[in-house]
Design a protein around this nucleic acid. Structure first.
Lengths: 340, 340
DNA sequence: GAGCCGACTTGGATCGATCCAGTACGCCGG
DNA sequence: CCGGCGTACTGGATCGATCCAAGTCGGCTC
C-alpha cells in the first residue's frame, strides 16, 4: 500500500517502477485490452504497490471532463413535510458513484436569478452536466441551460412547453393519486374529497385529475368535494375543517403530505381518529408520514429509479450517444398505513 | 457577454484582448493590488466581454487545491424521524459557497469499510478536505483519516479519545436536554421520565445526564423513570406504554424525535392527548416534530452555526493558519410546541 | 543627465495525464 | 533472407493557469 513519500506518486512514477513507459500505464488504466496480459499484471502490481490514483485535475484538464454532476440545492423550507430531497439525493449519489461520477452541490444564492451558480460552474468547466430538480416552479432554468448548450437532465416534465427538447425523467403523479383513490374505493369509501394546490400548478392539476377521473369512472360525484390552496399545514387544516363541516367526506385525498398533516391536525382538533372516522392519504411518503401516529397512507415516488434513469440519460448525453427517449415517466406506488 | 466561439476563452485570450500578458491577467484575478487601477479595469472589461472564468482543472493542477470539500452520505434510514442531514447539508453548502468552496458528495458503499471512498478521493487529489459526520457510531473514520494526514473536521466530539488531535464542532446535547427539562419543570411537572438510547452510547448518556442532573438539582427523583433502548419508533412506544402503566409520569423527555414520535403513538393508542395529559419532548426538531399534531416540542441543533464553524475551521486548516481551538461546542435551543 | 528605485510586465517552465506520430519487434509468406 | 503487416511500446507536445526569474519603464534624486 501507499508508500510514505513526500509527494503522491504520478503516472511517471508507476511507469518507472513497472519498467514501462507512461503511455503504457495510461493504456493499462484506460484501454487495458491493448496490453499483453503479462505487462498489464506488472503495471497493476506497481499501481497497487505505490497506491497510485490518477490525478483528477490533470486528467480533467486533458480530457475536458470532470466526472462531476452539478446539483443546486434550493433553500430549505421548514415546516413542510416534504423531505423528498433527502431521499433523492441519496439515490442520486449512489447511482452517480456507480457510474463513475460524483455529485457537486452548490447553492443558488437568491431565487431572483435562476441561473445563479450555473453559469460559473459551466464556464470554468467544473462540472460535466447538471441535474435540475426545481421543476415545481415551472423550471425556468431548463430553457436557459438549453440555450447555452449545457448538458442537463430535468427531474420533472416541462409542463409549459411539452415539446421541449431536453431530456427529463418524471413520476406520474396522476397515476399515484389513482392508486390512492382506488385503494379508498376498495375500502368502501364513496365520499372522497380532494385537497390540493392552486389551479395554476400543472403538477397539482395533474394529480387532481387522478382523483377527479377515478371517482367519475366509478360513477361517484366530486361536486363540492374539492379544495385548492397553498401547500401549507394551515391550508390543509382549514380546508379539512370546512369540508368536514359541510360535506362530510369519509376520505380525504391530498396532493402532498404537508396538506395531509394539516388534515390530521383538523381531525385531532375535532376529536376524530384518522383511519377510523375519516381516511386520509398524502403524497411523497415523507418521513413525517412514516412516523406520525397512526401512520399516514401516502403515494411513494420511486426516487431510486428516478435517480438511476437520470444517470442513465446523462451517460448517454455525455457519451455522445443517442438519447433513446426524450422523456421517461415512472409510476409511483402506494404505502398503505393506518390512516386509511 | 459570452461570445459564441468554438472554444471557451482562456487566460491567453483575455490577455490578447486586453493587450497585456497572461501573468497580468492572472494577477488581476489573484492579486489585483499589483495592478494599476487603469490596467485592472481594462483587464476586467476584457474578462466581462469574453465571459471568461478560469479553468478549474488547470488551476487545480497547478495549485494543488480543488476548492472541493468531500462529504460522505450515509445510507438513508427510513422510518426514523431524523432529517438532520437535510438541514445540515443545506447549511454546509451555503457556508461553503460563501467561502469559495463546493461540496462534493460521495457514497461509501458498504458500511464494512469506514474508509471506502475517502481513500480514492484523497489520493487523486479530488478534494481538499473532508467533513465527517458519522460520529454517532463512534466515528471510526476520524482516527484513520488523521493517520493519513487528511485534513478534515468532524461534526461530533471524539468521545472515545477525548484527547484526539483533530478539530471538531459539536452541539451540547446535555445542555439541550437541560433546556427541555427546565421548561417542563417551569410548567409544574414533577414526574419527568426519560426515554433514551443504550448505555453504550456516549451521546445518549450525555443527553441523559442533562435530564438526570436537572431533576436532582431540583430535588426531584429519577428512580424507575428511565428507559433505554434502540432508537426506533417501536421502542419509544413500548417504553412509554410501560412507564405510563407503572410510574405515571406527567412528562416524558426523549433522546430523539424518533423516540418521541413513538411516545405519541403510545399516547394515541391509550386515548391520551399529548400536551394535555402527558407532556412530551424530542430532540432534533425534525420536520416530523414540526408537522405532527399537535406539534412536538423539541431541542433544536443550531446546524447553520455548526456548518459555519466547520467551514471556518476548514479555512484555517487549509490556509495553513493555526487552528485556534481544537473543539468548539455550540448550544442548542428549544422549539416549544403544543406537546408540552 | 546619470544612477537608482520600485512598480509593473514579460516569456519560459511547470503541474500530471492524455493525444499523437512514430519506432521496435515478432510473425508470416515469398 | 527480405519485405509487409500488425501489435506493443516510446518520446515529445498539449491542455490552461500559476510560479519564477528576469526585464522594461517611468519617476525621482543629486
Amino acid at each position: 500500500m501507499a508508500r510514505r513519500t513526500g509527494r503522491a506518486p504520478t503516472l511517471a512514477t508507476v511507469a518507472q517502477t513497472a519498467g514501462v513507459s507512461r503511455q503504457t500505464v495510461s493504456n493499462a488504466l484506460n484501454s487495458p485490452h491493448l496490453l499483453r496480459p503479462e505487462t498489464l499484471a506488472r503495471v497493476q502490481s506497481a499501481i497497487d504497490e505505490l497506491g497510485y490514483s490518477p490525478n483528477r485535475a490533470a486528467r480533467q484538464l486533458r480530457t475536458r471532463a470532470s466526472q462531476l454532476i452539478g446539483l443546486r440545492v434550493e433553500p430549505a423550507s421548514e415546516g413542510t413535510a416534504n423531505a423528498l430531497m433527502d431521499r433523492f439525493l441519496h439515490s442520486l449519489v449512489e447511482s452517480s458513484n456507480d457510474a463513475g461520477y460524483h455529485v457537486l452541490l452548490f447553492s443558488g444564492g437568491e431565487a431572483s436569478d435562476p441561473l445563479a451558480g450555473y453559469d460559473d460552474l459551466l464556464r470554468s468547466t467544473a462540472v460535466d452536466a447538471f441535474v435540475v430538480t426545481d421543476t415545481y416552479r415551472g423550471n425556468p432554468q431548463a430553457g436557459l441551460l438549453a440555450q447555452r448548450g449545457a448538458p442537463f437532465v430535468a427531474f420533472g416534465r416541462p409542463w409549459r412547453e411539452p415539446v421541449a427538447e431536453h431530456p427529463w425523467v418524471d413520476v406520474d403523479g396522476r397515476a399515484g393519486v389513482v392508486l390512492a383513490v382506488e385503494h379508498l374505493l376498495a375500502r368502501g369509501h364513496e365520499r372522497v374529497a380532494w385537497i390540493g394546490w392552486h389551479k395554476g400548478s400543472h403538477i397539482g392539476e395533474d394529480r387532481r385529475s387522478g382523483w377527479h377521473d377515478t371517482l367519475h369512472a366509478h360513477g361517484l360525484s366530486t361536486t363540492r368535494l374539492s379544495a385548492r390552496g397553498d401547500d401549507t399545514l394551515d391550508f390543509g387544516r382549514r380546508a379539512a375543517l370546512a369540508l368536514l363541516d359541510s360535506e362530510q367526506p369519509t376520505a380525504i385525498v391530498c396532493a402532498s403530505d404537508t396538506l395531509a398533516m394539516g388534515v390530521l391536525h383538523a381531525l385531532a382538533e375535532t376529536g376524530r381518529v384518522p383511519g377510523r372516522d375519516v381516511a386520509v392519504t398524502g403524497f411523497d411518503d415523507s418521513i413525517a408520514a412514516q412516523v406520525v401516529p397512526p401512520g399516514l397512507t401516502s403515494v411513494r415516488q420511486p426516487l431510486e429509479a428516478v435517480a438511476q434513469e437520470i444517470i442513465d440519460v446523462l451517460g448517454e448525453l455525455l457519451g455522445h450517444r443517442e438519447v433513446t427517449e426524450r422523456g421517461r415517466l415512472l409510476t409511483p406506488t402506494l404505502s398503505v398505513r393506518n390512516s386509511s
